[in-house]
Design a protein around this nucleic acid. Structure first.
Lengths: 254, 254
DNA sequence: CAGTGGTCTAGACCACGAA
DNA sequence: TCGTGGTCTAGACCACTGT
């Protein structure tokens, strides 16, 4: 058994047994390495395991902190289409911007359109004071529809009225599609995990694995009307899906 | 930009530009490290990025091999409940075994039953010749039902007849529940990513992130009748979900 | 500024696979 | 057996945070 796993197991035990409380800073890595009689890279590999489990949070220049379990951002794949209720992470601020580009290889493949076709790109970023918690890239072909940013994303002018919350997952774009007469009736979500790119690591302040969700939305004719790529640090987020048997839907409808 | 990301980008380019074909073995790590003028740990960190993307496969003692893109095992969250068709990865062998245990902390929390309650545990392992591609732990409280292994998991006696395929995701258990009069009408899947444990790393032959799916199945009274924990190497597997708008279901029913 | 984590070195030794 | 990847060392230097 590799030494870093042994150390990770021991640190996990010490944390769950309450040696450090939620929010506490762990002993410095150098001291922990000395205590376990290993080199710092080895100790850091152990901390990486705990970070990927969401048990600790690493803050560069500050320390390693014990996190609240289940204090995770949730991507609810059913929320939009099934009109589910629930809090939308009020502590996170969501920023958005939009632009027009030509479909790259990846976008063309996602939307199943020709390379170089005109598409609108919307980027939603949710973050707290310190770091980014999710990034959503939403693409809509100009052939399908064309519009600006959702009103909730526009800066308020002088007013200090409560701003309607913006979804971190780009649901507002799907709502605008609906308002424009393009009705999303189904979506497919593909979920993988990978290590973050340089930019992602910098923005999310973590080198732990990220969850990557590729989402495509379909109208009643089966055409792809929207495609998205969502990225969230797996140590701070999870994806949730609910599936109901078709028979139940029919029974409740009849 | 960290050096290992620069190297990962360059190696990704060299692979996609065809310097190595699918199935080819990359130059040995020591040589690559010399070529990029970095130490071996740094080069290995670059390879870890490519591995997490599913671009290469690391084989201990043999080498690093270029993988077919999109040659991934798929966990289809809708398959069982919506009776979807599709191939079930015929190249993978699925093995199963079952036992009876008392609910641990994690199992009790998953099934929302008392600590120490009797549960059946079924373990499904899918693998090719070399390594494990998925592990599914399926739990059924004895209060709900009690039965042995699915017939497809039992060894054939002398016969060489074609064995019905076993689902790597424990769908056979849900089918047996249904046969016993316990009907699963909805499931919730929670998906996270983390680094593998020692055993998982050994079985799956990878230290790249794994996708972990926590699944709970509900009957029409809203009781949890089954809980599962699925683990798959994210470099070799993805999870897919399809959501349909409720309105469409009602329209088609009326 | 001091203290922290992030990256990296130039090796070493071990475990595994194929011949 | 030999070449491969997996783990680890004992430092070094840099980047970031908070005082």
């Amino acid at each position: 058994m590799p030494s870093y796993h042994t150390i990770a197991d021991d640190l996990r035990r010490r944390i769950t047994e309450g040696e450090w409380s939620v929010g506490d800073r762990l002993t410095a890595e150098a001291s922990l390495a000395a205590h376990y009689q290993v080199s710092t890279p080895t100790l850091r590999q152990a901390l990486l395991v705990l970070q990927s489990e969401g048990l600790i949070e690493k803050l560069h220049g500050s320390g390693n902190y014990v996190r609240q379990p289940r204090e995770r951002l949730t991507y609810d794949g059913n929320r939009y289409l099934l009109r589910q209720q629930g809090p939308l992470h009020p502590k996170l601020k969501v920023a958005a911007y939009g632009s027009t580009t030509e479909a790259s290889d990846a976008i063309a493949s996602l939307l199943q359109i020709d390379l170089g076709s005109a598409v609108s790109e919307y980027v939603f970023t949710s973050s707290d004071e310190r770091s980014v918690a999710s990034v959503a890239h939403v693409y809509v072909p100009h052939q399908v529809a064309r519009f600006g940013l959702p009103s909730a994303a526009l800066p308020l002018q002088g007013q200090d009225a409560p701003q309607p919350a913006l979804s971190p997952w780009g649901d507002d774009i799907r709502q605008m599609l609906s308002d424009a007469g393009v009705h999303v009736v189904s979506t497919i979500d593909r979920i993988t995990a990978r290590l973050p790119t340089t930019e992602e690591a910098k923005a999310m302040r973590t080198t732990a694995p990220v969850l990557a969700v590729e989402r495509t939305s379909y109208d009643d004719a089966g055409h792809i009307v929207e495609g998205s790529v969502l990225v969230m640090p797996s140590s701070r987020a999870e994806a949730v899906f609910c599936t109901r048997a078709r028979t139940m839907e029919l029974e409740s409808a009849g």
